[in-house]
Simulated assay, not measured.
Amino acid sequence: MRAVVLRAPGQAPDALEHPDPVPGPGQVLVEVLAAPVTPLDLLCASGTSYLGVPATPYVPGVQGVGRVEGRTVWFPTPAGTAPGDGSMAERAAVARDDLVDLPDGADPVRVAALGLSAVAASAALHRRGGLGAGERVLVLGAGGTVGQAAVQLARLAGAGTVVAAARSAGARERARAAGADAVVALDTGEVDELARRFRDAAGGDVDLVVDTLFGPAAVAACRALAPGGRLVNLGGSASPTAALESGVLRGRSLRVLGWTNLELTPAERSAGVAEVAALSARGELSVPHEAVPLADAATAWARQAAGAAAARLVLVP
């Protein structure tokens, strides 16, 4: 079969002929329909992930959408986090218990583009962030897939105001199209200025921040939080560190929280994906995405690594 193969950590993968997977006990063979290229895939493949160095060679792809036994399903894989191949291939061996049936009308590429990114956005808002109806929400990094989903999910949950902050003009336009009430340019590292922009855009202090960036934007967001406000961090694409101020945290009794989907049990993860797929099928949740032939995986990988993709890239065998 045709598959994307990573030969060594830190190298770019290639699309080439690869042996068909052989299902083990409790596994089924899935015909892959769509496999997203995600930041987690690149992080695992780099060999610098907190999850450890992957055993190579292997087929990347931590999630995908496929067909098995006449059903269209979403599925996860351990690729890059544990021994085993992933979704970036024509076929994948997947644990039967991990399959999530997709509802009628769900588009495989759209669901693959949302996938675990939308599950993380939902968890940041609800499970970790405790979003209440009418609250003011600030999304940092709102042009990315997690941020786009967070904007839409906050609106669906009844947030009073949703403010989207992003670095590029294109990202801000995507956030506005996703339903943000206001957008803020992250074109400065001046914390006081950013905090002022956040409050002005929200019409006052913010209750909940969904943060995919960290760095100065997160510091400014803490200054813009209301007493008892929460910041949920899901990533550090702007910086791995943030100089949070003790006086701000204590003076406002703020909560700074982290989230990873690895905290979810398999049942919780399946329920999250099912919810995302249902919203997608109803046309209530979507993110910009681009279908790319599996044969062009190396180019797609390079675009994702360089930050040159304005949409979630989804490989289509």
Rank of each mutant, 00 (worst) to 15 (best):
A3R: 05
L6E: 05
P9R: 00
P13Y: 14
D14A: 15
E17I: 11
V22H: 12
T38P: 00
S49W: 06
T56C: 15
Y58N: 07
Y58R: 05
V59I: 15
V59F: 09
V65T: 02
G70R: 05
T72Q: 14
T72F: 09
V73C: 06
T77L: 06
T77W: 07
G80I: 10
D85E: 07
D85Q: 10
R91P: 01
D98C: 01
A106D: 03
L125T: 09
G129E: 10
T145E: 02
G147M: 10
A154I: 04
A154T: 10
G158R: 11
S168N: 08
R174W: 02
R176S: 14
L186N: 05
G189R: 14
F198I: 09
L208D: 05
V210L: 12
T212I: 10
T212E: 04
F214L: 15
A218Y: 06
V219P: 03
V219Y: 05
A220M: 07
A224I: 12
A226C: 04
P227L: 10
G228F: 07
G228N: 03
A243I: 01
L249F: 03
L249D: 04
S253K: 06
S253V: 08
S253I: 01
T260N: 13
L262D: 10
T265G: 12
E268V: 09
S270H: 13
V273P: 01
E275A: 15
V276H: 02
A277M: 03
L294Y: 02
A297V: 07
R303T: 03
A305I: 09
